[in-house]
Design a protein around this nucleic acid. Structure first.
Lengths: 222, 222
DNA sequence: TTTTTGGGTACTGGATCCAAAAACCGAAGT
DNA sequence: ACTTCGGTTTTTGGATCCAGTACCCAAAAA
């Protein structure tokens, strides 16, 4: 039908786009921690009214990217060692579970897609394209999350994954050589998933994240 | 001044109140799964405009209590064995982590408070007060979550905890004797926490939740 | 009788609008 | 010079308005 071919012109709802835009601005440090975000300004900047902006801000608040002072507006969430610890403590078991489930499901056509991602990852790593590396990395983890076939788990991970990304971008952009371990680890995870090795996938994933945690932590403390 | 004495009647923000109200209506089955929730009706029912209602609905959607069909509004999320499985699969490691952290922190004055909760739990159980039992149970788990001193973890658990509550209320109200295991398990958890036994607390918690999962699952399948 | 089409209705999503709280600023008084 | 008070401005939070879309039903066409 004609409708079917036209229907996806309306790609995404407006608040989604705003969330996307603000989110990456926060992750990539264009909006530094603590910046006061004013509804009216965002609305003007993106040529929309305050309604969709308000919704977008609420969502970002819920994801922990923004914090709200009642009746005083929102500001970009501060980053801190404490916050980092909280996030990673939660990420470890959840990412582990996702990897294990992905291995358990063993959807045959995710392996090639994971490999494609892996290549992107390596390419960006070698060419020193930090931002590109992060895009590829998000795509990779998203694939794993989807392969786990648990939308509840996926949405939990999406939220804290983004928060983690802030710290990771901060860490990797100050010490670019950190990505090495990440690339290796990702390859190991793919191996475990294609072997249907649930506990293996879980263990490898948890180790990788734990290591990432420690490394970032050291960098922040310094 | 008179104004000052009146001003704090407005204890919480309006959307919060709406979330609270709708949430419990959903958990306790007053709004059955699939019910179409119309913004205008809710607004009229609670004597507010659509703005705060919209925000409340967005939040409930985000927590998985409501689902949205683009441009067609929201309805109460359907319940299903699949959904139950997703929730519990996530709850197990997270609740386990929370219990372990609570044991690690060992804030001395949470133990008596947990015991108070435990008594409430037992009393409601004995008098067959299902709804009261649930209130006490939420208070209990909230205490554990707070004792873990990880607000990120707490907020993750708050979200899926509520979704789980729907299933638990459904299960317990059809087979009231199920609560027995829950009361015992809760006591064990308190013991582990006061012994500062992290792995023990984790194990016991995970077991308890896993058991609850299986039981509810059987009931749903039937 | 079944399918299509047109109009009417209902509801969401976005844009204003308005009130009230908080931040800002400047003048007066200590 | 420093604080305090009062008015002004900014900005949030809630109410209302308007446009666009999906749904329903009835009438016309096949």
């Amino acid at each position: 039908m004609l409708r079917d071919s036209l229907i996806d012109i309306q790609v995404r709802a407006m608040p989604d786009q705003l969330v996307q835009a603000l989110e990456s601005a926060i992750v990539f440090g264009e909006l530094p921690a603590g910046t006061h975000v004013v509804e009216e300004e965002v609305a003007e900047r993106y040529r929309v009214s305050r309604s969709p902006v308000r919704e977008a801000l609420r969502r970002l608040e819920r994801d922990g990217m923004l914090v709200r002072d009642e009746r005083r507006g929102v500001r970009v969430a501060p980053i801190s060692a404490r916050d980092l610890d909280e996030i990673y403590m939660c990420r470890i078991p959840l990412e582990g579970l996702a990897a294990a489930q992905a291995a358990a499901m063993h959807n045959p056509d995710v392996i090639p897609r994971l490999n494609v991602c892996l290549n992107d990852l390596e390419r960006c790593f070698k060419s020193g394209d930090i931002k590109g590396y992060f895009i590829a990395n998000v795509a990779f983890t998203d694939l794993v999350h989807n392969a786990a076939a648990n939308s509840t788990l996926a949405s939990l991970l999406e939220g804290i994954g983004k928060r983690a990304l802030r710290y990771r971008y901060f860490a990797y952009s100050t010490a670019p050589d950190l990505v090495t371990a990440s690339v290796e680890g990702s390859r190991e995870i793919v191996d475990m998933i294609s072997d249907r090795n649930q506990t293996g996938a879980k263990k490898v994933t948890e180790k990788l994240i734990e290591r990432s945690w420690k490394t970032i932590r050291n960098l922040i403390d310094a």
